[in-house]
């Protein structure tokens, strides 16, 4: 998941969309006093610090590359919250870890976007595959350097 900070104005639509299904919101984007944008959502890291530090292995990297929480194993000790550089772990009413799973359950197999991406008014929030993203950026970099040159 990637947030393009340039276009985002912290309107909070994504947080609202994420909280619709009766669960706690798992994404929060705030505008700091100095105008900077702080984005708290899970980057689904390749080697997640939260999973490394969780005493009961409640947080773990799933086969499909999403970091998934298993509340029944969670102690609520917040070690993951401290470890994660993006404060991307949220806690439900019962203090159990509840984090972004890219709307895993509802979207499996469909090409629909996760709720927050769909709700983003400015298209600043994009769900991207890291490998695919580098190819796109390289294409853009080459295009930007496009010079119709003659010898």
């Amino acid at each position: 998941m990637h947030l393009d900070r340039l276009h985002c104005d912290a309107c909070g639509e994504c947080t609202a969309a994420c909280a619709t299904a009766g669960r706690t919101a798992r994404i929060r984007v705030d505008r700091g006093a100095g105008g900077g944008i702080a984005a708290f959502f899970c980057r689904h890291c390749g080697r997640p610090l939260c999973a490394q530090v969780c005493p009961t292995a409640s947080l773990a990297l799933g086969a499909t590359g999403t970091v998934v929480a298993r509340p029944q194993r969670c102690l609520g000790c917040r070690m993951c919250l401290v470890a994660c550089p993006n404060d991307a772990v949220f806690f439900d009413g019962a203090g159990k870890s509840d984090k972004c799973d890219l709307c895993f359950g509802s979207l499996r197999g469909t090409d629909r976007q996760p709720a927050c991406v769909a709700a983003c008014t400015r298209g600043a929030l994009r769900l991207v595959g890291l490998r695919h993203e580098s190819a796109i950026r390289r294409g853009a970099a080459a295009a930007a350097r496009q010079v119709a040159f003659r010898r």
Partner: peptide, 27 residues
């Protein structure tokens, strides 16, 4: 978590007051 990486990085804080406030993170 963000503050932890700020400590790790040894970054200079220009506006610590703002950090005391809840949710919004100052730039």
């Amino acid at each position: 978590g963000f503050l932890r990486s700020v400590i790790r990085r040894g970054a200079v804080l220009t506006d610590p007051e703002g950090l005391l406030g809840t949710p919004p993170l100052p730039g």
